[in-house]
Design a protein around this nucleic acid. Structure first.
Length: 422
RNA sequence: GGAGAGAUGGCAGAGUGGUCGAAUGCGUCUGACUCGAAAUCAGAUUUACCGGCAACGGUAACGGGGGUUCGAAUCCCUCUCUCUCCGCCA
């Protein structure tokens, strides 16, 4: 959520933000709702002040005295008036809040103009896409793939997009998770093992609710949501809290399975490990001082990039344009790994600075040098999503004999340097 | 799952219908005393929103929501969470 003061003091800034993100929001209406709410609030507060004052008088009077009874009459009429005004205020407030929620975060000035993914700017490329295996093929076409990754049985037991990982397949997943967590720990992220179901309040604070896209799985009886990303339980850890300034930046990482319904996304990019309903991911989170957040975004991006470098996977970094930037992000980099078999880029991380947009909703603050609570800036990024990294590893490192040679860094975690599909 | 108890400010803990944003203690901060510190004394010490350039003024908040009442921290309902006992279970 944006600072309501921003809308009042610099509406043109909000207007240009909406334009840059290519969204369609009636800002005039939001401003009107704001005005209406404030007007009603003033009225109701004046009435309440009157109530309090009369009530104060009453406490001085003898109960049952004529003066007392007269005040009771006065209070009764005040009561009905307050009741009707309050109802109007509540409606106005709800409408105003909904309207405020419809305002996107302001893109940072360094965010390029653009409408869609084709307008994203390639900020960096690393590695040579031509230097990978000459034997590369889509991972699902590798001989014996089904021995390590069993989709049909997953579909039988649960549904499409819930594969079984078997033998070396399972071990590879575990090795990658372990590698990612160890690397994150090395650069100062404290490991957290969070709940993987969250309540409505938490999902709302991070903006996952209201779930317009039907993205999340919801439990029937308890109204809990299976996390689509560890970002939700991690960010909400400090919800409604005030952190000591000296603790900033706080850095945490978590491995969780992630659950996404992916409603509406069909097509050929769903083959194999490309898009799953359940997948494993390590998420990196930072809570930082507002003055540090853009430097920290670069650090975060670097932390994610280093993983791909160590794995020897060619990748590129996209700086998202205004139109392809999410609703809540002020600036975002996507990391895409080269998938040699599919000859396409696969998104494996998305590193974002939310500034205080998330923190306002979740009320995460720190005590600044004036000893006043101030909103922190939050950042998060994947470090990394497992299945697509796995896909790239299998494709890019496929050898002539049909086995896959693993990068050195994974050997301590996997135990061997070769994956066989037999 | 069954029975019971509870939830108050940074913490502890009073308050069972009227001037209670809330006693008291601890903590924290400022000042005095001191060469300095401790102890002591004095004062201060929640947050959010609205109005205001500001000083400041107003409103709200005693786990959440709803109700009773002229008036609710206090009474009623409900939800959540915590604790104790029993049952069950990895």
């Amino acid at each position: 959520m944006l600072d309501p003061k921003l809308l009042r003091e610099s509406p043109e800034l909000v207007r240009s933000a909406i334009a840059k993100k290519h969204l369609n929001v009636d800002l005039d209406e939001v401003q009107q709702l704001d005005k209406r709410w404030r007007g009603l609030l003033t009225q109701v507060e004046a009435l309440r002040a009157q109530q309090k004052s009369v009530n104060g008088d009453m406490s001085q009077l003898a109960k049952g005295s004529p003066e007392f009874l007269a005040k009771v009459g006065e209070m009764k009429s005040l009561k009905t008036e307050v009741k009707t005004q309050e109802a109007a205020l509540k409606d106005a407030e709800t409408a105003w809040q909904d309207a405020m929620m419809s305002l996107p975060n302001i893109p940072h000035e360094s965010v390029p103009e653009g409408k869609m993914d084709a307008d994203n700017v390639i900020a960096a490329t690393h590695g040579d896409v031509n230097a990978v295996s000459a034997h590369a093929k889509p991972h699902w076409e590798i001989d014996g793939f089904e021995n390590l990754f069993d989709f049909p049985r997953g579909a039988k037991v649960t549904g499409a997009g819930f594969p079984y990982y078997i033998g070396d397949g399972a071990k590879l997943v575990r090795a990658l998770i372990h590698f990612f967590l160890e690397e994150a720990g090395q650069v100062g992220y404290t490991e957290v093992n969070p709940p993987i179901f969250v309540n409505a309040a938490s999902a709302t604070a991070t903006g996952n609710l209201p779930d317009k896209e039907g993205q999340m799985y919801e439990t029937v009886v308890d109204q809990l949501y299976a996390v689509p990303t560890a970002e939700i339980p991690l960010t909400n850890f400090f919800r409604d809290e005030i952190l000591p300034e000296a603790d900033l930046p706080v850095q945490r990482c978590a491995y969780t399975p992630c659950f996404r319904r992916e409603a509406g996304s069909y097509g050929k990019d769903v083959r194999g490990l490309n898009r799953l309903h359940q997948f494993d991911k390590v998420e990196l989170l930072k809570w930082v001082h507002p003055s540090q957040s853009y430097g920290e975004l670069e650090n975060l991006r670097g932390d994610a990039e280093r993983l791909l470098q160590k794995l020897g996977l060619p990748y590129r970094v996209l700086l998202m344009c205004g139109g392809d930037l999410g609703f809540a992000q002020a600036k975002k980099y996507d990391l895409e790994v080269w998938s040699a078999g599919q000859e396409r880029w696969l998104e494996v991380s998305s590193c974002s600075n939310f500034e205080d947009f998330q923190a306002r909703r979740a009320r995460i603050r720190f005590r600044n040098c004036d000893n006043k609570p101030e909103l922190v800036h939050t950042l998060n990024g994947s470090g990394l999503a497992v299945p697509r990294v796995l896909a790239a590893l299998l494709e890019n490192n496929l050898q002539e004999d049909g086995t896959v040679k693993l990068p050195e860094v994974l050997v301590p975690y996997f135990g061997r340097d070769t994956v066989s599909f037999g």
